[in-house]
Design a protein around this nucleic acid. Structure first.
Lengths: 204, 204
DNA sequence: CGCATAGTTGACTACGCTCAACCCTGGTGG
DNA sequence: CCACCAGGGTTGAGCGTAGTCAACTATGCG
């Protein structure tokens, strides 16, 4: 029932047999923008970022892929990858030829529905990012990001990547992020210990 | 073959029979954020905007639905709508109960694949928006938007909605948009007649 | 041990937002 | 038919916020 590209055993044999595995170290690039889109991937261990560069040279992060997630499913519908996949930390990747995936999808609506669900989740996270970017004030944007990042009911967030990265995801300069976090801390709205942030929220 | 929610005749009878139709005038709201997500829609005629409000009260436009497009497919996976659907111009909408859609999807991988393709397109347009928002300079953001908006090979763009709307989509104030367009015109990079913009591009 | 990079803070700048005034258009009602 | 009004479009002036540059510390890695 639970079709999951990161667990080949849960998949139809045709897919399982078509898969092959690759290992990468930090900094390697799995595929580049405009490379022929031949594979769909799942991440067994590690972390990978899907990014593009704007005309100004700024990095845009579309997705941060973590262990157990699949990515580049959009290869199904395009000839070329539309972003770069950059390996963050040593990673082990499962590669599925998109032709095989496509074959199986034709006759397997369970797999198709699991793809749909994945697409939907990506949509949501893109919408969340877009909503964040629509908040002009750095302070409010950061607060909203903290709220989104906290698991429901929780008030502590532990980030597994640098503040610099987070600043970029938020579309802010690192300096602005540091400064604003310091300010929020001074105002006792949050407390921090390294990459752990605690919300001291009497407000929503 | 070409399953299309906006053309009921192209659909399995179960879906076609489950559909019902509604008409709306400009300004009406089809559904609100957090309403129970009971239906998936297709737009026969008109234009509808899917929007949310930020904590600052700013409008975020996630999608502009035009005639022939379907929307709110994400209702399949959520209990509540996560945005508002606001009617822009008089519109005729086809409503499919999501339970019926779900039923049909189970056994019809053609329909599932057509949904996948739709989701993929929405993903792309969200990514494009996000990329735009990552361009800090208003000038470059607007230029990039014009490039994205021009059909490939074409140099003229005719907008079917106000500059005010477009400014909002770009995350800029209307004044900044007007000013920058005027500047680009002075520099003979574009020419304008009302809502028609022509790129005078020796670049890219 | 040393280097590269993240994190931090200060000072200055610049860009885009706000407010304000004005023109122009289309639509509505008297 | 005209008067009025609402809203979009346009431009100016001033301000505020976030970016940039710079110096320095802390941290991790070879």
């Amino acid at each position: 029932m639970a079709m999951d590209l990161s667990v080949p055993d849960s998949l139809p044999s045709q897919l399982r047999d078509g898969a092959n595995y690759q290992n990468f170290v930090a900094g390697q690039v799995l595929f580049h923008h405009r490379d022929p889109a031949k594979y769909i991937f799942a991440l067994e261990v590690g972390r990978i970022r899907l990014v593009r560069y704007t005309c100004e040279g700024n990095l845009v992060v579309f997705q941060i892929v973590r262990a157990g997630e699949s990515f580049a499913e959009s290869a199904l519908f395009t000839e070329l990858y539309h972003c770069n996949a950059v390996v963050d930390v040593p990673s082990r990747v499962i590669c599925y030829p998109k032709t095989v995936v496509w074959e199986v999808l034709q006759n397997n609506s369970d797999l198709a529905l699991s793809f749909l669900r994945r697409f939907e989740r990506k949509n949501q996270s893109l919408k969340t990012l877009l909503e964040l970017r629509s908040i002009h004030s750095a302070r409010d944007r950061i607060l909203q990001y903290l709220l989104f990042s906290a698991s429901p009911g929780e008030t502590t967030i532990v980030f597994d990547r640098s503040y610099k990265d987070i600043a970029n995801e938020l579309g802010l300069s690192p300096e602005t992020l540091y400064r604003t976090l310091a300010e929020l801390e001074r105002e006792k709205i949050i407390t921090r210990h390294g990459r752990q942030v605690e919300l001291v929220t009497p407000q929503i």
